[in-house]
C-alpha cells in the first residue's frame, strides 16, 4: 500500500519542487558553514599571527575572537533561518504532496469499486 503512495508522490511535480528547493537551500547553507569554518581552521593552521592581531590599533578584540564570535552568531542565524523555512513553507508543501497522493489513491480505489 505505501509503495503505491511512494510511487504517486514521486510522480508529483510538487515533490520534485520540494526536494529541489529544500535541497538547494540546505546544501547552500552547509557550504557556507564549511567554507567559513575551514577558512578559519586554515588561517589558524597557516597564518596564526593574523588570528592574534587586534582588529584595530589599541582594540582589546583580536581577529580570531571576532571571527569565532561571528561564526557562533551567524551559524545560529542560518540555523534559525532554515528551521523557519522548513517548518513553514517546506512542511506545507510536504503536507500537500502527501495529501495529493492519498487523495489520488482514494479516488483510484473509488473508481475501481464503481467499475466493479
Amino acid at each position: 500500500m505505501s509503495e503505491a503512495v511512494y510511487a504517486r508522490i514521486r510522480a508529483n511535480p510538487k515533490f520534485v519542487e520540494l526536494v529541489t528547493r529544500r535541497g538547494r537551500l540546505a546544501w547552500a547553507l552547509a557550504w557556507v558553514v564549511w567554507v567559513l569554518f575551514y577558512a578559519l581552521v586554515l588561517t589558524v593552521a597557516f597564518a596564526p599571527t593574523v588570528i592574534g592581531m587586534r582588529v584595530m590599533e589599541g582594540s582589546t578584540l583580536s581577529v580570531g575572537i571576532a571571527a569565532g564570535l561571528f561564526q557562533f552568531v551567524f551559524f545560529w542565524i542560518l540555523t534559525a533561518f532554515y528551521v523557519n523555512k522548513a517548518n513553514t513553507d517546506y512542511d506545507a508543501l510536504t503536507a500537500e504532496v502527501i495529501e495529493d497522493a492519498l487523495a489520488a489513491g482514494a479516488a483510484e480505489r473509488g473508481s475501481g469499486r464503481a467499475a466493479r
Binding site: W34, F37, I65, F75
Partner: peptide, 24 residues
C-alpha cells in the same frame, strides 16, 4: 587562550551541518 576557543567553535559547527543535512 585561543586554542580553547577554536575547540569550542569546532564542537559547535557540527550542529548546523547536522540540521541542514541530517536531522529531518
Amino acid at each position: 587562550g585561543y586554542d580553547g576557543y577554536i575547540y569550542m567553535i569546532a564542537f559547535f559547527v557540527g550542529w548546523p551541518i547536522i540540521l541542514f543535512l541530517m536531522a529531518e
